[in-house]
Design a protein around this nucleic acid. Structure first.
Lengths: 244, 244
DNA sequence: AGGCCCGCCGTTGGATCCAATATCCAATAT
DNA sequence: ATATTGGATATTGGATCCAACGGCGGGCCT
């Protein structure tokens, strides 16, 4: 059999089923904040949107719940997960532990091309004018550093932690000094990577994340005390663990 | 309405649906090693075992896949996930980063009663004679230290990491010196907690996990080179990420 | 008039049925 | 004889249908 045909072949057994496509779409909508927290997710309406029956929708919702992006009660339906300030704070602590480890491993493995790609991501973030894309660009930059770590499991866990707080990071960046601070932090991390100082890159990453977390939580608490609970700030005590 | 009735009330809206029960049962079977890695999971046969249709089984399998305990290919069915030595090694590295953080936080929060409970778990592990329960007792001990950390998200992540390697830890404990070493490690960690030396407890935990990991991976590699790939050692390169 | 109960309706959880795909095996051509 | 092909069977993915449950509002009793 000719192993090299004239056309590009794809492994069809790994193509996505509809439930996976639905999961991806819902995940993206939640992570990006287009679906507000607490929003109820009706199987029927989602099914109609995708022109499928409720079965693949249910499987997608199940996976969302497994990843902690939605919460359900039997026979009552599913809602987009909310996070209390305490929970958000914990996620940032968590990221501040893990991500430095990942960068530190990645730095010596980055090629010159990788570094320039990361610098481009850094520049793209710094130059970003559309506030709606800041979260995405922020994530792209961090990921451009982490992806060379050769630690797939660490990456999958970091990705999930990022997913849970991405919505809130967006609002943190919108703070007056949030974007400014992020720009300088990012460039400092980038520079440490460029001069192959893995330990410095790790420490800077840790500080960067911790700072973003405390700033964000302070902002949320402030918002809560000033506007009551009417703002976009998250509700309290709806934590749903990732497993079970 | 009387708030205190003569019987214990439970929140029925949080009781498990059949798909959750099936998920728990399958997870337990995989984690404990009763289901060998690579074992195919037929929806039909599982459905018959639980006397249900294939629908809840499929949802349970979907969750298993989301947690990385099973892997699937479209129309081909699902198999119990296998881990390569590299993947196992990475999980131990991961645990060696996270678990020290969790113990360190837990130590100052443990009451005298918590400490004595932990010591009992430690003793139970040390006294365990049934090799089949070593894994479970090992886990109980670690968990008795971690559960007071007040870090639910960290705990859920640690739990998932433990789930993935539990089967292999079992075989590591069965090594001639594995159990011996674990006993002394555990007591050292326990002592550090008892004298409220959080930093020492953290460092001892880190060493303990790293040592267990390297011992285990060395054992697997040895097994692979001596017996070909016929042993219980895991196959290579079947990694399926936790997310997506 | 006010509180309680009961039945209707929307939604979810599960069962059954159908379509799409993989696997296995026999038939066939080279 | 071997490789290829076509079909039979097993298994998964999805659609449709039914039952169980929560929520809500109207009627009823006090």
């Amino acid at each position: 059999m000719p192993e090299d045909l004239a056309f590009e072949a794809v492994d069809l057994s790994r193509t996505a089923s509809s439930s996976e496509l639905i999961y991806d779409a819902l995940r993206d909508a939640i992570v990006s904040g287009r679906l507000a927290e607490g929003q109820v997710l009706r199987q029927d309406s989602i099914a109609r949107m995708f022109n499928v029956s409720r079965i693949p929708v249910r499987e997608a919702l199940g996976r969302l719940e497994a990843h902690g992006l939605a919460a359900s009660a039997r026979y009552k339906g599913m809602v987009v997960a909310s996070m209390s300030p305490d929970e958000i704070s914990e996620i940032f602590e968590f990221r501040a532990v893990l991500e430095p480890v990942v960068v530190e491993r990645a730095v010596p493995r980055m090629s010159a091309a990788d570094l320039s790609r990361a610098q481009r991501a850094c520049d793209a973030f710094a130059a970003g004018t559309d506030a709606a894309r800041w979260g995405e660009l922020n994530r792209d930059f961090h990921w451009s550093l982490y992806s060379h770590s050769g630690m797939p499991y660490h990456l999958s866990v970091v990705r999930n932690a990022m997913d849970r707080v991405e919505r809130y990071v967006r609002s943190q960046l919108k703070l007056t000094s949030g974007m400014e601070r992020a720009r300088t932090d990012h460039q400092a991390i980038m520079d440490a990577c460029a001069r192959r100082d893995a330990a410095a890159a790790a420490e800077l990453t840790r500080q960067h994340i911790l700072n973003a977390g405390t700033t964000l939580v302070a902002f949320i608490d402030l918002q809560k005390t000033t506007t009551g609970s009417a703002g976009v700030g998250p509700g309290r005590s709806n934590y749903v663990g990732a497993s079970r």
